[in-house]
Design a protein around this nucleic acid. Structure first.
Lengths: 205, 205, 205, 205
DNA sequence: GTCTAATCGAGACGGTACGTCTCGTCTTCAC
DNA sequence: GTGAAGACGAGACGTACCGTCTCGATTAGAC
């Protein structure tokens, strides 16, 4: 979240309802207006809250949108679907369906763009959004290694590198397909993607 | 470029030098300020040009930055390096080195973000930036098919789908590695990436 | 006025109509809202002008109101009414009728209050408002000296001191009567005031 | 004062020290910041008091400043100096020395300005500040009539009118000299003023 | 060599959002 | 029930850019 528990014991406590209202209003505004036309004054109005209240909790548009979008990724899960291929297809479809929602589309790339010049923002994105996805990759790999579908990783450093690589390949492909190419990451595409990821380009029929 | 030569025969012709100066100034401003702090008034001042002159040629910040960033991708080439793996490694390294430049980092994601709500902008990006990269993918695949490294594609529709998939996987992975994970797409990473792309996850030593 | 002819030859010239509209809108807002509820945003809206335009010409509320109120004092005149007493009564009544207008009442004291901490503002008030009244005092005295109603002033320094004193007594009495005591400076009061001023307290009846 | 002792028997009684601290803090803030930059939050902090406490006692900035400034006028006295002229000179010098203090300069005119649109405030100023001065005028006149320096006033209505007139002339002149003309009401000026007030303009030299 | 029309620079214009400030009220806990 | 602390809704502040406009001053090609 945005507050780092400033340890103030006295005074009126901050309204928890306001936080939720502001984040919901932010997502609604993203859907209606998109990132570039979203204004904090409008978000405050939608949330039935004063601008002051908003600025007391978030430093600016970017931080607010990160938190608002991050909540969308709460629903990502990795149930055991029986095989590595099924696990990948399942999580990629989930991920794609989140990226398909307009509140994610317009906001996500914008904060990533800004994070290239703002390390605090990049860290916030990592903690709120990226790590959540990364955990699924590690979990899926461990499960596949249990099943014997993937070889075990003896070296922890190498393991981290490979985990990063897989994550960049999976997330990058879905994001690029959805937001840059502008085409849907539907079941057919996901199947093709999973096959190439697992068996390589040369294996194509 | 941006002008469609409105067929005006008479009057003072537009200064060609101004175009170049504006695009260069835009890149310089991107480096110094990043996307969000870049203002057209400042670009005009840097270029030694009036705001009017700038607006006569570009409709707004997004269009201008697309053109300014697109020029960076002119240097992408695909010399024959002898094998598919070498070709991929070469072009990915080139691509990564472009994405590493600050004028690309801050601008590229921002215009992509905006393009999720602006079809004209998406089309402009596709024409100026994406197609240029896509062509390399198609060219590389054709070359690999000649070498017998990849099977031929009899069905044109299927061929297009596969081309799209490869492109999203390559470009997506590099972009995600560079801009989201914030780590360098260096030679070691590129080698690992190429191996997985060609032979699949399961093939890991 | 507010501009000191910045001698800019180039660029779009400032709209003269905007100046007049802003000052008129300021007076209208003073009448409706009074000093403390007057906002520059509202003045700009009333004048059909952007806030920017207003701030380009005036530094703030105080300066703007000084100029808006100063125009009210343009109508002050000193026709020869035949005697010093008649001249004083005439000009005091004029002055009182200006101070009776709501746009002057609410604004004048406020800028004077602020001027006690802002020398530039005090100077602006002096130049725009006070000097205009002072001139009438000097003119009236000179006329009375021609008529032989007042003794001539041989010493220029002493003359300036006496002029200041008379001015403070006349203007101060009218202002205090109108704005502090809150009672009208009507003909009866003006006659009494003039008698005391000319012949002294002890002369009553 | 501001509270009307609402006869609450129970609970913690209001701190009397808080009142004094708030008024002193208000004067200190007037000296440092002047009227326009004085904020109630700042006054509360200076007084070591919560904003709530302040608002429980005063309705707003204007009322608070009236009370804070009014205390300055407590020191006004009219000892018998032997003659009307000496009495006037004495009280005018006292009055001028109060007006010379920055906490009075910046606050007094501001509340007068606001009082032109707020009858309750005008009444408060009259009761707290103006009447205190008015009483001195009436007392001085009575004393002068006892001495035979001024003729007696048979008609009470006429007496009130004349008292008002003298008051407006004395207070108005000092205020105008000090706050509008911005020059000191020093002994020399006070002597000249007293002479003109007592014997009239025509009597000079 | 004009003429002519679109260009150029400069900068003011009406807007809109910004992020900050102060207002006066409300809510909590401690005394 | 009062006090300090501080969050709250409200709304003005003055600034920054936006994209458009109005200027006077070039500038090239058409005549």
């Amino acid at each position: 979240m945005q507050s780092r528990t400033p340890a103030s014991r006295t005074g009126r406590p901050r309204s928890a309802a306001a936080d939720a209202a502001i984040l919901a209003a932010t997502r609604a505004a993203l859907v209606e207006l998109g990132w570039s036309k979203l204004t904090l004054g409008d978000v405050a109005t939608r949330a039935g809250v004063a601008k002051t209240t908003l600025y007391r909790r978030w430093a600016g548009k970017h931080e607010l949108v990160v938190d608002a979008v991050a909540e969308l990724f709460d629903e990502l899960e990795l149930p055991d679907r029986g095989s590595l291929a099924a696990d990948i297809e399942g999580v990629v479809l989930q991920f794609a369906s989140i990226l398909d929602r307009p509140e994610a589309r317009s906001g996500l790339m914008a904060v990533v763009a800004e994070s290239t010049r703002d390390d605090a923002l990049r860290e916030r994105i990592r903690a709120s959004i990226v790590d959540r996805q990364m955990r699924l990759v590690l979990e899926g790999r461990a499960r596949a290694q249990c099943r014997g579908e993937l070889p075990p990783e003896p070296d922890p450093a190498e393991s981290a590198r490979t985990g990063d690589l897989i994550f960049d390949m999976v997330a990058g492909a879905v994001v690029h397909r959805t937001l840059v190419s502008g085409k849907p990451a539907d079941e057919e595409w996901v199947r093709s993607f999973t096959r190439v990821l697992l068996t390589g380009l040369a294996s194509q029929q």
